[in-house]
Design a protein around this nucleic acid. Sequence first.
DNA 1: TTGACGTATTCCCATATGGGAATATGATTG
DNA 2: CAATCATATTCCCATATGGGAATACGTCAA
Lengths: 118, 118
Amino acid sequence: MARAATTTDAFTAVAEQRRREILEVLARGERSVGDLVVELHLAQPQVSKHLKVLHEVGLVAVREDGRRRLYRLEGRGLKPIHDWVAGFARHWEDRFGALDAVLEELTGERTDGNDHEG
Amino acid sequence: MARAATTTDAFTAVAEQRRREILEVLARGERSVGDLVVELHLAQPQVSKHLKVLHEVGLVAVREDGRRRLYRLEGRGLKPIHDWVAGFARHWEDRFGALDAVLEELTGERTDGNDHEG
DNA sequence: TTGACGTATTCCCATATGGGAATATGATTG
DNA sequence: CAATCATATTCCCATATGGGAATACGTCAA
């Protein structure tokens, strides 16, 4: 089954290094497929394919300009990832990390349920 | 070539829905493989496999406890993802989103380089 | 030791992908 | 309409994966 039809969410789209690079370039401004080919040293077909994926998950938007197609970043698409990851923030922020360590030392077991929430 | 040997970074590890769920459970506290099997309704081998991937990319840590193995979240591993995505924050935060729209209206072209950075 | 339990591995299979090359499609210019 | 530029698609192939089933391992209880 391989990756369960995942190419439908931003998480998977962003899992690919190349695609992250494309988004980084687009973050600096609109770009045509050709621009990306040059800036990223990738083959045109590959760029188009990656853009297709990014477009399907709503991470980029297109605009026609003569024979060119200008792609631009659709930032909102990244918010879900941001929100999800942010939910784990307290797990790596030092102040809390230290507290976790102490708690685990004391309990020697799971910290489970209500950690240092409220 | 498929996904270029990516199973080495957090981005790919987290691209899998199941793995995200595992991390969410572990965020609530240490869990044994069996616990996860029950809480996530997954087969034991699958859980072990996912945990292996998560462990390889440093998203979870293990601790031996008799015949059981207790896994716990290693939050720091998510920071790279957080930082990367956070770099795009201004692209979805309303105040800036509006400004982008205006700028694009005015220029009718790329916004390129120095946007509303400093 | 033997047997049960908890977890990790291995096999096998279906399939999602990505890259490279070649080709199709659209739009622009002459 | 022909030639050309800019992109998108399609083919083909190697390979990474994930799930399911069976099995190997390590640890604990008798």
